[in-house]
Amino acid sequence: MGSTSGKEEGIDYDEVFAPVARIEAIRIFLAYASYMGFMVYQIDVKSAFLYGQIEEEVYVCQPLGFEDPDHPDKVYKKELCDEFEKLMKDKFQMSSMGELTFFLGLQVQQKKKGIFISQDKYVNEILRKFNYTNVKYASTLTDLEKPLVQDGDVADVYKHLYRSMIVSLMYLTASRPDIMFVVYACARFQVSPKTSHLLAVKRIFRYLKGKPSLGLWYSKDSSLELLAYTDSGYAGATQDRNSTTRGCQFLGNRLVSWKCKKQTVVVTSTTEAEYVAAASCYGQVLWIQNQLLDYGYNFMDTVIYIDNTSTICIIENPIQHSKIKHIEIRHHFIRDCNAKKVDSMGKIDTQHNVADLLTKGFDAGRFQYLVSSIGMLNP
């Protein structure tokens, strides 16, 4: 939209921003498409909303051109799809791009048994960019014997190179939750990166060299039940000892959302760190529940799995514990959600808590188990 200088809001213009779809919304849509067995097509509408003379709200819906599994008595004709496409081409500058194979940096392979999401072309691109096409690959992302620290006495490395590598890896986390924890741990040292930090980033590239095609598999046969897992790495940040929030949300066995972020509050116990992480997970679950309402699904009382019994007791006990009065009020909304049966807490053993993948480094066996548990595989 053009400049609003000299114009009055509400008279000359109403909104001055462009709505942007969250990447989680795209993954939710693809998960739903895999469940329904839809074939997703892509169209490019160049002028429908930029140049069209629109004086009212416009809703564009997919024409009925498929067999609806929920209503087998309704069999729709392909001619309706062709008619819809012709109408759009006549009315707007629209071009049909065929079956969806690439969207917002994600490669999408639509198969009979589900949808596979990856970024292997991008992986190969950054491996060439940083000259890692011929290196020896690593089976894990971190060296457990050499944790990342500030390393003040070691010489600095070239900041531009380090930051460029980090930014490239952060873009890759849109489909690779397996690298997210280590990437964001390395990202905390961008101000003054040292040799040890650069070596840690290089190890990530060596890991990608060995598994460039790893991606998310959305199986058609899985249910559409909304499940969530939350975990926390207590005092895991080596710089300031802040805890970290980890969480992931599934539709059936389809991983659609995940988070790995350092907590802004200072906590004094594992229970408090888990409580703050659970609040963050609750917020994301509420957002996903609202998204799924548009698809006609009401997932109230979603189960959120956590491996900390004390946190569950705090959330489910209606009595305000004196030991948690110092926790910021904004984290206590999870108790209201629990009381209203919007969500519920479920106890899970740490060994089976898949959010553990986003909390710390692991040996090869444990790491591979967690990666496969969240539905990542090679095509």
Rank of each mutant, 00 (worst) to 15 (best):
E125R: 15
K113M: 09
L172M: 13
K86I: 06
K121V: 12
F103Q: 03
D143R: 00
S175Y: 07
Y132L: 07
F205D: 00
M94E: 04
I126E: 01
E125T: 14
M97D: 09
F92E: 07
F103C: 07
V135W: 09
R203E: 02
D90A: 13
V182N: 10
L198F: 02
F205I: 01
S192R: 14
Y158Q: 08
G105M: 08
K220W: 07
Y132T: 03
Y122R: 04
P147S: 02
Q109H: 13
I117R: 07
V108W: 09
K136C: 11
K146Q: 04
Y122D: 05
L216C: 07
G210E: 07
I166H: 02
Y158F: 06
K159E: 14
T140Y: 01
L161K: 09
G105R: 10
P212H: 03
Q107Y: 05
K112W: 06
S213I: 06
R128D: 14
I115T: 11
E125H: 13
R206G: 00
D151P: 02
D90Q: 14
F205W: 05
K136R: 15
Y184C: 13
I115F: 12
Y218K: 07
T101Y: 09
S118W: 06
L172H: 08
N131K: 09
K220Y: 11
N134L: 12
V182E: 09
E99Q: 13
A185M: 12
F205S: 01
V167S: 12
L208K: 00
G210K: 05
Y122A: 04
I126F: 00
K121H: 11
T142H: 02
V182F: 06
K86M: 08
